[in-house]
Design a protein around this nucleic acid. Structure first.
Lengths: 208, 208
DNA sequence: GGGCAAACATACACGAATGTATGGATAATT
DNA sequence: AATTATCCATACATTCGTGTATGTTTGCCC
């Protein structure tokens, strides 16, 4: 095959990643062969083996393609886009939860990626490190939540007798739960409508 | 090989299940071969293929061996072991959460099984049905929580302006989150001590 | 503009795991 | 006590996917 332009090269790389994401989400990582990814991307296994060492690295690329920019955007949404402290910290926490779930449910790439990470892959061996790093990332998010709740407490938005750190841990566990719920098979009555209600109720429980 | 006694037969079946559980939790379902399970169980692949059709059925057996009796025990713990309504519904909810994660963290078989279900298997194809049935099961648990919170409301244990159904959904998402946290790689500061604290705070948030 | 390596397609070799077929010894059944 | 089906070990066939080796063309750099 002939050599491609740099932009063409990057395009086939992206085609491979997106084809892999769709196939991973449908059949699971285990049951998708590189041949299927290649066919879905309109290339051959030769192209895949030139861009990636093996299937695990494709999975890492799929994850980094969505999870990383998403977490960054969410982080500075929590920090407050203007400077550091907002005038409505509790509201920005709720907004943070809403936009996160909105991304997960409505953006196909994000949804498929989270679907893969939650249900369609095994965290084993070399890929088990991924879990550890994810936990670290989200642990940082918990700290952001703590800071936000502390700011909310100083503004008098929280009910009395509540500990910001405890609220943050509770919200974090809550977030993990609703993400798993919204990504999983939708057997709860109406997934797109109940989750926002749950978020509102979750925040309302803290409001003083 | 010679024919075994019925009790011996059931014993080898249990040996296979337990060997499979350990291997699944360690290397993941994908990377464990039937040969490894057989070796860990002290038998050959012939025994496995006599008891189970394939690896998926072993996984189902591993799941049913722990998840089913656990959920049953938890259910009648929520219902109240004596009749239906307890004198302290909110306390029994908290106790329910405590015993659940106590099982998950301290009982090796339960912990390994949940570890497999959360991180070491892919819900794909025929096994994807398992997820759906699990969701249905836990949806029933959410209804039990709603009833318990309603009982707590009628006893005046809850703070004013709270909706039992909303509290139940929140607690359910919280439960999923902390189970995932306690089963996953322990990067949160101290897993065995923080989780009970989180549960206490979670319940304290509802108390009126 | 000439050399060189990029960017793949094609073809092949290989192992590894699965499923099955067979055999044999004995517990259960009558 | 004879028979049968159970319970499992052993051995074999087979497929499937991976990894690699090779070839070919052309964009890029000096």
């Amino acid at each position: 095959m002939a050599r491609k332009t740099k932009t063409e090269t990057e395009l086939t790389r992206r085609l491979i990643i997106e084809a892999a994401r769709r196939n991973f989400a449908e059949r699971g990582v285990r049951h998708t062969t590189l041949e299927q990814i290649a066919e879905a991307a309109g290339v051959t296994r030769g192209a895949i083996y030139w861009h990636f060492a093996n299937k695990s690295e494709i999975l890492l690329a799929v994850r980094d393609d969505v999870a990383m920019p998403l977490l960054e955007r969410l982080e500075n949404l929590l920090m407050g886009s203007d400077g550091d402290g907002r005038e409505d910290p509790l509201g920005s926490i709720e907004e943070f939860l809403h936009t996160h779930i909105d991304r997960v449910t409505n953006d196909p790439a994000t949804r498929q990626t989270f679907e893969i990470m939650f249900f369609k892959c095994e965290y084993t061996g070399e890929f088990g490190e991924t879990l550890r790093t994810m936990v670290c990332k989200t642990h940082g998010m918990e700290e952001r939540l703590t800071a936000a709740y502390r700011a909310a407490a100083s503004k008098g938005q929280l009910r009395l007798g509540t500990d910001p750190a405890a609220l943050a841990r509770d919200t974090y566990a809550f977030l993990v739960g609703i993400v798993r719920l919204s990504v999983g098979p939708g057997n709860l009555t109406s997934p797109e409508t109940t989750i926002p209600v749950m978020i509102r109720d979750h925040i309302a429980l803290r409001r003083g």
